[in-house]
Design a binder for these strands. Structure first.
Lengths: 149, 149
DNA sequence: TGTATTCCCGACTACATCGATGGGGATCCG
DNA sequence: CGGATCCCCATCGATGTAGTCGGGAATACA
C-alpha cells in the first residue's frame, strides 16, 4: 500500500548504496569520484546514476564539485550515514503515502502486524552505516584473497 | 528488484489475510463464508477477492464448497496457518525472480544486507499464525468494549 | 579568454505491475 | 429445472520504475 519501502531495494536505492560505499572508501583521503567512473565500475547507466547522486546531494548526504577534476564525495564521515538515511532519501518520494487501511477489526490487527515489520526493518536499516558496509566489503576482499595463497 | 515481497503488503495480500482471519473465527463451528459476504463486510470488490480466495484454495489453505449454501472455509486449524504461508501464496508469483545482483564487492555486501532484512521479515511472518491474529482481534474488540462501560 | 570537462535540471518514453472488471462455464441444492 | 455459488481466463486503466535525452551552468586549465 505504500509502494516504496520494499524489502528488496529498488534499482535507485541499490545504485545509490553501492556508489556511497565506493565513496566511503576514499573519504579519509578526501578524494572525489565522478559519475561516469562509478557508473562504469558498477555497470550502471551513467545518466541514470546521475539522478540518484543528485537526490543524495540535495539530502546533504553528498557534496559535489563541478568542472574538470570535479566529482562527488561524502558530506560527512561514513559512520554518520546510515542506510536508513539513504533509503529514506532515494525511495522517500513514492513512499510518502498514508496506509489508510479499512477500519474493520481485521484490518486493524493487520496494521499492527505491518507496524512490527516496519520496526524490524527500520532497526536494521538505521543500525547499519556506510562504515559497516565498507568494513564488510574489505573483509570480503580479504577472505577472497585467501583462496589465492 | 523483486517487486513482490514488500514490507507494506499488496492489496492482494491484505485482502487475503483479513478474509482468512474472518474464516478463522468460525473454523471451530465448521461454518463457511461466501465471497460476497466477506467482500461486503470488508469493503473489498467481490470479483477481485474471488481471485485471492482461488489462489489460497490452490495453495491448500482454503477449501471451497460450490452451489447454494456454498462458500469457503479454512483447510486446517488457524494455528497451523502462518502469515508466511499466506504471503508466499499471494505474492509468490511475482516474487519468484532471482536477485541477479552485479558481481562487484559493493553489490555483494548489499546482497548480504538484503538477506538480513529478508530473514528478519521471514521470522515475523512465519512466527505469526492466523490464530495469533484472531486472538489479537478479539482482544482489541474487548478493549474497545471497555470504553462503553 | 577559450574550451573541454564535469555537474545540473527537467522532460520524455517504454514497459511492467497492480487493482479491478467482465463474460461465460461448472457444480450443486432444492 | 433454476437459481446460487464457485471457477477460469481475458482484458483494461492507472501508476510507477528504469532508463534516455537535450540542453544549461560552473570550473580548471592552456
Amino acid at each position: 500500500m505504500l509502494p516504496g519501502n520494499s524489502v528488496a531495494f529498488s534499482a535507485k536505492t541499490e545504485y545509490g548504496i553501492v556508489s556511497l560505499v565506493e565513496l566511503a572508501a576514499i573519504y579519509e583521503q578526501g578524494g572525489v569520484l565522478q559519475v561516469a567512473e562509478i557508473a562504469h565500475r558498477q555497470s550502471i547507466p551513467d545518466r541514470y546514476l546521475e539522478q540518484m547522486l543528485t537526490s543524495l546531494r540535495r539530502a546533504r548526504i553528498l557534496r559535489s564539485i563541478r568542472g574538470p577534476k570535479g566529482g562527488y564525495q561524502l558530506a560527512r564521515p561514513p559512520a554518520d550515514i546510515t542506510i536508513a538515511d539513504v533509503v529514506g532519501c532515494l525511495e522517500g518520494e513514492a513512499a510518502a503515502r498514508a496506509a489508510a487501511s479499512r477500519d474493520t477489526p481485521e484490518f486493524e490487527v493487520l496494521s499492527a502486524l505491518q507496524e512490527r515489520l516496519d520496526q524490524a526493518r527500520a532497526a536494521i536499516l538505521s543500525g547499519t552505516s556506510l562504515q559497516d558496509l565498507l568494513e564488510q566489503r574489505d573483509q570480503l576482499a580479504q577472505a577472497q584473497a585467501m583462496y589465492f595463497i
